[in-house]
Measured scan of single mutants.
Amino acid sequence: MGFKLLSKLLVYLTASIMAIASPLAFSVDSSGEYPTVSEIPVGEVRLYQIADGVWSHIATQSFDGAVYPSNGLIVRDGDELLLIDTAWGAKNTAALLAEIEKQIGLPVTRAVSTHFHDDRVGGVDVLRAAGVATYASPSTRRLAEVEGNEIPTHSLEGLSSSGDAVRFGPVELFYPGAAHSTDNLIVYVPSASVLYGGCAIYELSRTSAGNVADADLAEWPTSIERIQQHYPEAQFVIPGHGLPGGLDLLKHTTNVVKAHTNRSVVE
């Protein structure tokens, strides 16, 4: 069995187990497998329904001669939608809004960016022009300005110390501490036991640490421990890039980060 097929099978099995364990909360999309990078042309966006009122959005972007996937989250909030992270750029984010209108038909009224990198804030200006209120932590807003990236308009308070959590509509926002970046936030959907790890969490097929220019490698494993301790009931975990899975993604990420750190020390 090929690795790609095995990865998709694991996603399907995880979703099936969740649907059985929580039949009222989960209505997993039966329309197909989780979209992969090879299936999404740059400039297009796919939506994948995880649970009743919960979707991931998947886009792709060219970077350094390669094409990478990027995940975000959409959560229903009454007759409105909360968006977590842009679709990595203005063109993708405009396509995301169009796809949401086509498939869901509810307005996106608020959006949260989970850290300051372009795959999370690139497209904020498109959201703002569409009347979406954009939010991020003060740290993310400051770092985005320093980096020359787009800056969300509103500040999220109460997320300055490791372990801080605040309720934001249908989700809980959690600051686990520094990891992929010093400002990275985690998003949890309690009604569906869905954990969105953003770039602080890796997919299972990833074996290298990737972009760690703004990471705190020493603190990252401790931050992941905080996530595990705060959300032990999480059933569906979405990484910032690639295929979702279960809580095993947290341990896998820790292993990859520690291996990278150990290699760096040896070198």
Rank of each mutant, 00 (worst) to 15 (best):
A94H: 13
S62E: 07
T222G: 12
S181K: 03
G65C: 04
D214E: 06
D64R: 07
A25W: 14
G242P: 05
A133D: 14
V75S: 01
N149K: 15
S70V: 01
V124F: 04
Q235K: 11
F63A: 11
V75E: 02
E225M: 12
N149G: 11
P138Q: 08
S155I: 13
A234C: 02
A259P: 11
T14F: 06
Y196L: 03
G32W: 10
Q228I: 09
V124W: 04
V257Y: 03
S155T: 13
F174Y: 09
G32P: 08
S191D: 13
I40P: 15
T182S: 12
A136D: 03
W88P: 00
V42L: 07
L185I: 09
L82N: 04
I17L: 08
L47N: 02
E225K: 12
G245R: 03
E225L: 11
S264V: 10
Q235T: 12
P107Q: 14
S113I: 03
F63Y: 07
P138W: 07
N184K: 02
S193R: 13
T36G: 08
A200G: 04
L204Y: 09
D64A: 12
I17Q: 05
V265H: 09
S56Q: 14
W55D: 00
E39Q: 08
A144R: 08
S31I: 07
N184G: 04
H57F: 02
E203A: 06
A213P: 12
E233L: 11
F174D: 01
G89P: 05
I186G: 03
D79R: 11
S223P: 06
S31T: 12
L127F: 05
S162R: 14
E225W: 13
P35C: 05
D164P: 07
D52R: 10
L106P: 05
G2T: 05
S22F: 07
V146H: 13
T134A: 05
S155Y: 09
S191H: 15
D79Y: 09
G177P: 01
E225S: 11
T93G: 00
V132S: 05
Q228A: 11
F3Q: 05
N92A: 06
Y12F: 09
R206S: 15
L173M: 07
G163Q: 08
L250R: 00
L127P: 04
R167F: 11
A111M: 10
D164R: 11
P170N: 15
V45L: 04
K102G: 12
T254F: 14
Y202S: 15
G169H: 06
P69M: 15
R76A: 09
I100E: 01
P41T: 12
S27G: 12
A95W: 09
